[in-house]
């Protein structure tokens, strides 16, 4: 039972991170029908930025909560700026092109950013400091939930609830949803589609940065390649939940995280990703639009 609980928590933790990154995929896909392969790289860059800032601050003698907040805020800002810039360079000129061209451009961007970080920083793994705060409260619950698990699950839940509220109740959120529904219609009603697209990239990247920070602290090391794997998993999560659907991305992330956790725990630890992908294939065969995806009976 205890083992089960551990696996469950591990899955939940992992799943919340996938969900955070998956949100970026699903939001961009909802509006541009583009698989943004460079999204994982944004997450990786955020982790690197956080590491750099945190290291400098620590060397200056700062500790604890202030390091976390400063490094976190800067990493999130930078990730958002990268997301914004990537869209302007690699996708915006391709608005009118066929669907495959931006996809190739995205793959190119992903390769570029990976190598950019590798060349400018290092190809080795770097140790990542645990920025997550310690407290008595966390110690007191550590018997049944690890402190970093707890923080990850709580933080990502809060962020996702905030995002849902933002999309539901703000003017910008409504404009984003309208654009995702029908871009032309939104344009006619006076929504500035370019601005909405930029904001989508900014928000998605900021969410990925939060995910990047949490996971890097949790795992304790990063390198230039971490974005790729996380990206593929997160995209899988987005599809699993029904791409374009925000609750779908969250649910998909959790399902994926749990599947991996239980799969590695009960079956074999070598096949972690295999469980994720198998679940994806099975669900899509049974439900071709993902768990929460809208059925795609097209009007003729």
């Amino acid at each position: 039972m205890n083992y089960f609980w551990d696996l469950f928590l591990g899955g939940l933790t992992r799943g919340s991170i996938y969900a955070l990154i998956a949100l970026g995929y699903t939001m961009v896909y909802g509006i541009l029908q583009l698989i943004n392969f460079a999204h994982g790289e944004i997450y990786m860059i955020a982790a690197f930025t956080a590491l750099i800032v945190a290291s400098i601050l620590t060397m200056q003698g700062l500790t604890g909560f202030s390091v976390l907040i400063l490094a976190g805020v800067i990493a999130i800002l930078y990730a958002a700026a990268y997301g914004f810039t990537v869209e302007k360079i690699a996708y915006k000129p391709l608005r009118q092109a066929s669907r495959l061209s931006p996809l190739i451009s995205a793959i190119g961007m992903s390769i570029f950013l990976q190598n950019y970080v590798m060349l400018a920083q290092t190809s080795d793994f770097l140790p990542f400091p645990n920025l997550l705060p310690q407290s008595e409260f966390l110690d007191s619950i550590s018997a049944w939930i690890g402190p970093s698990d707890f923080i990850i699950i709580v933080t990502s839940s809060v962020v996702m609830i905030a995002l849902s509220l933002l999309l539901k109740f703000t003017k910008m959120g409504r404009a984003m949803r309208a654009t995702a529904q029908d871009r032309e219609m939104a344009m006619l009603t006076g929504v500035s589609v370019n601005r909405i697209i930029s904001r989508t990239f900014i928000i998605g990247s900021a969410l990925a940065a939060i995910g990047g920070l949490l996971i890097a602290s949790h795992v304790g090391r990063i390198n230039f390649y971490i974005g790729f794997n996380a990206g593929i998993k997160a995209f899988t999560a987005a599809v699993l939940g029904g791409i374009g659907s925000i609750p779908g991305a969250m649910l998909g992330g959790l399902v994926l995280g749990l599947a991996e956790s239980f799969g590695t725990g009960y079956i074999s630890s070598d096949y972690e990703s295999v469980f994720a992908f198998t679940i994806l294939i099975l669900i899509l065969i049974l439900k071709p639009d993902g768990i929460l995806g809208r059925s795609s009976q097209q009007k003729v």
């Binding site: 690699a90 391709l94 092109a97 061209s101 390769i111 570029f112 950013l113 190598n115 950019y116």
Partner: peptide, 18 residues
């Protein structure tokens, strides 16, 4: 090499998307 390859992919798509 790979950095430029990535950039070239983007450049090609931007200038000759077809």
């Amino acid at each position: 090499r790979m950095l430029l390859f990535g950039a070239a992919l983007i450049g090609m798509m931007v200038f000759r998307p077809r």
